[in-house]
Design a protein around this nucleic acid. Structure first.
Length: 215
DNA sequence: ACCCAGGGTCATA
DNA sequence: TATGACCATGGG
């Protein structure tokens, strides 16, 4: 099992190595949500191009994307890959947001209710929903991704494949205090760490983080 | 030329 | 429930 001590030690190492990450990189909550869909299984660099296209076209907006034709939207987000799929998913998200009366109406939803509602939108799975809950609504939800699994596996903290998404999320959320600011930083740091290359030096930050954490 | 990147859905057994 | 196919661009 994952103890609070081990998880906080890992967090401290990551923070010491890389510092605050200032996530999510978006100017508005809606931009954040759109980015969460666009980044599905694609490098963030591609998403930046797609977001830039939408901004330049003056279409990075809830109502605008809802009105936009599929072909036009797909063309604007082309650099983010899977553009036909993601155009549909963005529109699904916008249609749902509008049906709820916009972003502000959702603030009052309890976290579990909001999570279920997000998951009911076709194209929003567990990770995308949790990204949105944490980074757009500041709810204390711990985001699990492939990097999280790989890191835990590498540190031999958990036999990763035998725990599903919900199980692993539950591990983090029960072991740690429900602090959205810390959860925000923790997930961002895991991603930052994953993108890091080992410099093969004696004081390599990457290696320092990955030194075994003894229970 | 190959590999993978801040997933999710759907059809099949 | 558990695999596999599919979606598709851009950087290393």
């Amino acid at each position: 099992m994952l103890s609070k001590e081990v998880l906080m030690t890992l967090y401290d190492r990551l923070f010491q190595a890389y510092g605050p990450q200032k996530w999510w990189p978006a100017e508005t909550a809606f931009e954040m949500m759109a980015g969460a869909v666009l980044t599905q299984n694609i490098a963030w660099g591609n998403v930046e191009k797609a977001i830039a296209n939408l901004k330049q076209a003056g279409q990075l907006d809830l109502e605008a994307i809802h009105r936009l034709g599929h072909e036009r939207l797909a063309e604007l987000i082309r650099p983010s890959g899977y553009f036909n799929v993601k155009a549909r998913r963005l529109k699904n998200l916008c249609a749902w947001l509008l049906s709820q009366g916009g972003l502000d109406s959702l603030q009052e939803f309890p976290t579990d209710t909001l999570r279920q509602a997000l998951l009911s939108v076709n194209g929003i799975g567990p990770e995308t929903a949790d990204d949105i809950l944490l980074y757009a609504f500041a709810r204390p939800v711990f985001v699990i991704d492939s990097y999280t699994r790989r890191l835990l596996k590498k540190l031999t903290l958990l036999n990763v494949p035998d725990v599903d998404y919900e199980g692993l999320r539950h591990c983090f959320e029960t072991a740690l205090e429900p602090d959205p600011v810390m959860f925000n930083e923790y997930h961002a740091l895991i991603v930052q760490h994953a993108k890091q290359k080992c410099t093969d030096q004696a004081d390599c930050k990457h290696c320092l983080v990955e030194e075994s954490i003894t229970n």
